[in-house]
């Protein structure tokens, strides 16, 4: 506190206060803006705790005010998070992508480093910076209200070209890839559509309505629940893995039998 008091007369204090005020109005706007009824309401405590977490874990790339940062050569260290919304944070942090570690073609999914509470606080902080899509609520994910057939159709038309019809994942250009969707939590699927992480396009409610999103999420859940009625799915990659299986496992069984019969006849 002492440190803070000493800084109060610092010339930059004014700028900071101005920024905070701006952020606060942004947050207010977010709270009242009509499109995304804030599914989850965050308390000021959440926002404060989130800010602390943010400064400790994220600011090195995204800047102390989440305004984004560039290194000396002008390459982005982390994009601005103002207006990305709670959904983006919940997705990125909840799937372990953020805080980011490697700098490859793409941020990887890994074991989440923040617990649910911390994730919520970070989301609270970022959503307080500017309006953006929020974390979906129970109702938006409720599979019992979903139309699976429509979900399957929407998925095959909009997502399968990158993620594969079985959700097994697929390659994009230059080493980038769309990850497999098996085992991804429903809310993260929903958020991925809302926020379009990295090379995935954003599917806002004009492209795919909230109802369609619920259908997609439920369809993927149903696919997973059904499992593979035919037995081992070989990763749902289709004809190529099936062919590989025929050339390796089945062929060795056959050769084994042929050699064995040959030996028997001796």
């Amino acid at each position: 506190m002492k440190a803070l008091a000493a800084r109060r007369h610092h010339p930059l204090a004014f700028v900071v206060i101005l920024l905070l005020a701006l952020a606060a109005t942004g947050g207010l706007y977010a709270a009242f803006q009509p499109r995304d009824a804030q599914a989850e309401s965050y308390s000021q405590d959440d926002v404060d705790a989130g800010k602390d977490l943010f400064l400790a874990n994220c600011a090195s790339c995204h800047g102390t005010n989440a305004q984004g940062m560039q290194d000396k050569s002008g390459a982005t260290l982390g994009p601005s998070l103002i207006g990305v919304g709670a959904a983006a944070v919940d997705f990125q942090v909840g799937t372990g992508r953020m805080p980011m570690q490697n700098s490859g073609a793409q941020a990887w999914r890994k074991a989440p480093q923040m617990n649910d509470e911390q994730t919520r606080q970070l989301a609270a902080y970022v959503s307080s910076l500017g309006p953006g899509p929020s974390v979906p609520d129970e109702d938006q994910l409720d599979a019992s209200k979903a139309d699976l057939e429509n979900g399957g159709n929407v998925f095959r038309v909009n997502c399968a070209m990158c993620h594969n019809a079985g959700g097994a994942g697929g390659a994009l250009t230059r080493g980038k890839f769309a990850p497999p969707l098996q085992g991804v939590e429903s809310k993260h699927i929903y958020e991925a559509m809302e926020t379009g992480p990295q090379n995935m396009p954003v599917f806002n409610d004009d492209n795919i309505s909230a109802k369609d999103k619920r259908d997609v999420v439920s369809y993927l859940g149903a696919l997973e629940e059904n499992g593979s009625p035919g037995g081992i799915s070989l990763g749902s990659f289709g004809p190529v893995t099936e062919g590989l299986y025929a050339w390796t496992i089945v062929l060795s069984l056959l050769v084994g039998c042929a050699v064995w019969l040959g030996a028997k006849a001796k």
């Binding site: 399968a160 070209m161 993620h163 594969n164 019809a165 097994a168 990659f237 289709g238 190529v240 062919g243």
Partner: peptide, 13 residues
Amino acid sequence: PVSAGSQPDWYML
């Protein structure tokens, strides 16, 4: 729709 990983059976690959 065109799915990622659309391939024919191995003998037509």
